Computed example of a mutant assay.
Amino acid sequence: MTRTERWQRLLDLLVERDGLEVEPAAEALGVSAATIRRDLDQLAEQQLLVRTRGGAVPHGVSYELPLRYRTSRRAAEKRRISEAVAALITPGEVVGLTGGTTTTEVARALAARPDLAGGSPALTVVTNALNIAGELVIRPQFKIVLTGGVARPQSYELTGPLAQQTLGRLTVDTAVVGVDAFDPADGAATRHEDEAAVNALLCERARRVVVAADSTKLGVRAFARICPTTTVHTLVTDTALPAPLAAAFEGAGVGVLRV
């Protein structure tokens, strides 16, 4: 296990248990207590947790892992979801991509499509995610439109009035939205209100809204709503989505694609 993988697992355990003690963490990861103490000290220096006597607790009231530590969660499911979402896109479209691990995989899946590998821009991609723009800007088949705004280090997303002003002047064919939660009754949501405001405007400017989310994010709620369920045209998720929950989304008018 590499240090990055070990840190990822430690942060996952921290969220799951709402706190960590050194000895149980060392046993769970199969390493020495000294290694865990050193890891916790280094993570505390990055303000990813707060050290306590004998362990650590989450940093702050609302805990959110930075994107770089969330990329390996449910990777196989996200890869299938991203490929299915990319297959929904027609050459020539204007595609909006919010930030997040799943939408980043969608961007990579679009880049891998051979029918989009031609010369002049095959797609126009509008995004507020710095990492997505950075990956796609070197590919001549994409025209990249990056919103302005204030960067959030947890998600690499640009938020605030500048991002909203840009999106308010654009029209998008398909908005692909990453979420922290999507519930048939409460709609799509995220943990951060500034991200929700930008994502909501992207949905308003789109002719079609696609939510790309693995099944662990479905049937649950989050702090800041992006849009009501009726705004979403298609939900692309994995096969672990329970049939009753899929039926509830379909009853609300959402097309459900399980891959």
Rank of each mutant, 00 (worst) to 15 (best):
V85C: 05
S82C: 04
L146P: 07
E83Y: 06
V85T: 04
A84T: 06
T104Y: 13
A86C: 01
L136Y: 10
G134T: 14
T124Y: 05
A151G: 02
L146I: 14
L123D: 04
P91S: 08
L110M: 04
D115W: 04
A111Y: 05
L136W: 10
E135K: 03
D115M: 07
L88E: 13
T127G: 07
F142H: 02
V94M: 11
A87G: 14
P140L: 02
E93L: 13
L110C: 07
V95K: 07
A107K: 05
T103S: 14
L116V: 00
P140T: 00
V106E: 02
T102A: 10
I132T: 14
L110D: 00
N128R: 07
S82K: 00
A109E: 04
A84H: 02
T124V: 13
V137F: 07
T127M: 08
G92A: 09
S120C: 10
F142D: 00
D115P: 00
P140C: 08
R152L: 15
V125K: 01
R113C: 00
V95Q: 13
T127C: 09
T147H: 10
G118L: 04
E83I: 08
G148H: 13
E105C: 06
V85N: 05
V137Y: 07
P91Q: 03
T90M: 06
S120R: 11
Q141N: 09
A84W: 01
V126Y: 10
Q141W: 02
L130A: 15
A112K: 02
A133E: 08
A117N: 07
L88R: 12
A111V: 00
V95R: 09
T103K: 06
E83T: 14
T98E: 05
A109V: 05
P140H: 09
G96D: 06
R113K: 05
K143T: 15
G134W: 09
A87Y: 02
A112R: 09
I144Q: 06
A111S: 02
T102E: 08
L97G: 09
S82E: 04
G149R: 13
G119A: 06
R113W: 00
A84K: 08
A112S: 09
E83P: 00
R152F: 11
A87L: 01
L130N: 07
I138V: 15
G119E: 01
G100I: 08
I138A: 15
K143H: 15
V95N: 07
V145E: 14
V85W: 09
G149I: 12
E83S: 14
V125H: 01
I132M: 08
N131G: 13
T102D: 04
V145T: 11
I144M: 13
G92W: 02
A117C: 06
N131R: 12
D115F: 00
G96Y: 12
T103P: 05
G92I: 03
E105M: 11
G118A: 14
A107R: 10
P121E: 01
I89T: 04
A151M: 15
R152V: 11
V106S: 01
G118I: 01
G119C: 00
A129D: 11
T101S: 15
V106Q: 02
A84P: 05
L130E: 10
G119I: 01
A112N: 04
V137R: 09
G134H: 11
G92H: 01
G99K: 12
G148A: 10
I144R: 04
P121I: 05
V137H: 01
G96A: 15
L97I: 02
G99P: 06
L97R: 12
I138F: 12
G99Y: 12
S120G: 13
I138Y: 08
T104L: 14
